[in-house]
Design a protein around this nucleic acid. Structure first.
Length: 532
RNA sequence: CGGGGCGUGGCGCAGUCCGGUAGCGCACCUGCUUUGGGAGCAGGGGGUCGUAGGUUCAAAUCCUAUCGCCCCGACCA
């Protein structure tokens, strides 16, 4: 409790003092001049920090005010609140449907992993060791020297356990037991789980010490099959993110430096956020035979040879919710794509004491009609807050469509309809407004995708030269250009511009391109951006 | 780990320099009036000032220690 208290107090304090001091110093005197200088910061008593003022703070404000999530008591942890979790459930449903359609089954592996398992694969260890939480004891006792509980020094574990930062090692330790013959392959398992990575700098949804995700682990008899699986799943991710989240992504491969620890090839989908930075939104890895080697997982082929099993793994996390906030949100709050919105339409009745029952009964009827269309609808009949408050409230929550219904409307046989993805209100005949909603929601879904796509197009460029590249990275955006394939060039570019190679896009064509920095012939056409 | 800052009702803060027994806004509760873009008025409840120790007649305020958190830098879905 006190932890939470200080979080806010401390962070707000600095900003507020800074904000207050500027206008206050000499502010009075300046009032006598003809033109009032605009105060540098307009204190926002309501709503959220405008994106243009402080994008990071806008994001945090929206996540909290829309009641998606809140900070947990332990540094870097978050509570996903019901509204945020409902979005996660919608995403899970969308993914599960496709995972199952492509022959995968859900299962669950344990949270705790023997430290020795974790150490089997060298690159894997190197990648995760720095951020693994370790369980060393199994008991607390009363402190003999005072009050409170202490870790019982007698209760040290013989073998220390790690809390999974990902599950490759446990999964493959089990696959060793399950796989003997080519007849046992392929195994295509997915698990929904929480994982822990002790992050230094955390942000709600985007990077927290514990997060929820899905990790697929499959085992195959051939390299070709593993490669096919890896590509198929990145395509599934593309489809869900673009079609359900209305967020356009670039599909591509990672360079060596950005690859998953232990993978031979990593594919990712990369999206552009509202501040023009890139967000890796899903990854699919071809692990080759690395984990099979580490866990000695072999099988008998049809012609009785012993071979190592081939492995992909793939995952998306609650980070996707952060992506949705940052890609679609505006200064009024969230804008949710209808396919994932927990509430697709909200009806706000407007009434006074004398009109209350008439309005509420008309609104109730409307809500029933809407529900019959298969639309997720909510009636906000609270009478302790004003209609204006409700408008802002539901806009903050990103509900795609709002219908206002008051006595005047009912008299005229109409309702007022407001799309969250645009501005302005329009009248609709009360008859038929419900029937039109499914098509309207589809239109909003498309419109959000189009807006995100246009935004990305506006900020994606092919820089002519190094100077143009630097300017683009400083301004923010995606650069599509040549790279000589040298990791040192990549590192130098990062040092100069903070930009990294987000991916080598699926449709790359390096022919005739030169490296943006060295001028050497390009080995790959890549996407550069500053990333989260 | 290095640098900077902060812990005072649920939240945001003032009070700390110049010790005198805690205040403001929001939120909350009650009532009345309201309700088409974040309602108004009146009344009310709630904190011992991160923790521990010290100085003092007296500590949110001074001293010491300690814990925690935030921001910036070195890692990452």
């Amino acid at each position: 409790m006190t932890g939470l208290t200080t979080v806010w107090r401390a962070s707000q304090r600095g900003r507020d003092t800074a904000r207050r001091q500027k206008p206050v110093s000499g502010g009075r005197a300046l009032c006598f001049r003809r033109k009032l200088p605009a105060p540098k910061f307009q204190p926002m008593s309501k709503g959220v920090t405008p994106r243009s003022q402080d994008y990071a703070r806008w994001y945090t404000d929206v996540v909290q005010k829309a009641e998606l999530a809140d900070y947990g008591p332990v540094k870097g942890t978050m509570v996903i609140r019901p509204y945020g979790y409902a979005i996660w459930e919608a995403l899970q449903a969308a993914f599960n449907r496709r995972f199952k359609a492509t022959g995968h089954q859900n299962a669950y592996f344990p949270l705790l992993i023997p430290k020795s398992y974790f150490s089997r694969e060298a690159a894997h260890v190197k990648g995760f060791a720095k951020e693994v939480a370790v369980v060393t004891h199994y008991r607390l006792i009363n402190d003999p020297d005072g009050d409170g509980l202490i870790v019982d020094p007698e209760a040290r574990l013989e073998e220390e356990l790690i809390i999974r930062p990902t599950s490759e090692t446990v999964v493959w330790s089990m696959y060793k037991q399950w796989i003997n013959s080519y007849r046992d392959l392929p195994i295509k398992i997915n698990q929904w789980a929480n994982i822990v990575r002790w992050e230094m700098r955390t942000r709600l949804f985007l990077r927290t010490s514990e997060f929820l995700w899905q990790e697929g682990h499959t085992a195959h008899a051939t390299a070709a099959e593993a490669d096919e699986e890896t590509r198929q799943m990145i395509e599934v991710y593309r489809e869900v993110v673009e079609e359900e989240m209305a967020l356009p992504v670039i599909v591509g491969r990672k360079t060596d430096s950005e690859r998953f620890p232990g993978a031979v090839e990593t594919w990712s989908i990369e999206a552009m956020m509202g501040d023009r930075r890139a967000l890796q939104s899903g990854t699919s890895h071809n692990l080759g035979q690395n984990f099979a080697k580490a866990f000695d997982v072999t099988f008998r082929t049809e012609d009785n040879r012993e071979e190592l099993v081939w492995a992909p793994s793939w995952g998306v996390s609650t980070r996707l919710i952060g992506a949705m906030v940052m890609a679609h949100g505006d200064d009024k709050g969230l804008r949710l794509p209808p396919r994932l919105a927990p509430i697709q339409v909200v009806v706000v009745p407007i009434f006074k004491d004398d009109t209350r029952s008439a309005v509420l009964s008309a609104a109730g009827k409307l809500v029933t009609d809407i529900a019959h269309q298969g639309v997720r609808v909510e009636l906000d009949d609270r009478d302790n807050v004003s209609p204006g408050f409700k408008f802002n409230h539901w806009e903050m929550k990103g509900v795609p469509v709002r219908i206002e219904l008051g006595p005047k409307d009912i008299a005229e046989g109409k309702a007022v309809l407001v799309r969250r993805d645009g501005d302005g209100k329009e009248d609709r005949a009360l008859q038929g407004v419900a029937a039109g909603l499914p098509a309207l929601l589809d239109d909003i879904q498309r419109s959000l995708f189009r807006q995100a796509e246009e935004f990305r197009a506006e900020h994606t460029h092919v820089p002519e030269n190094w100077e143009a590249f630097k300017a683009l990275m400083a301004a923010g955006g995606f650069a599509r250009c040549g790279w000589d394939g040298d990791p040192q060039t990549e590192a130098a570019i990062k040092a100069d511009t903070k930009a990294t190679i987000r991916c080598i896009p699926l449709d790359e064509d390096p022919t005739g391109l030169t490296c943006i920095r060295t001028g050497k012939p390009a080995r790959h056409e890549v996407i550069f951006a500053r990333a989260y």
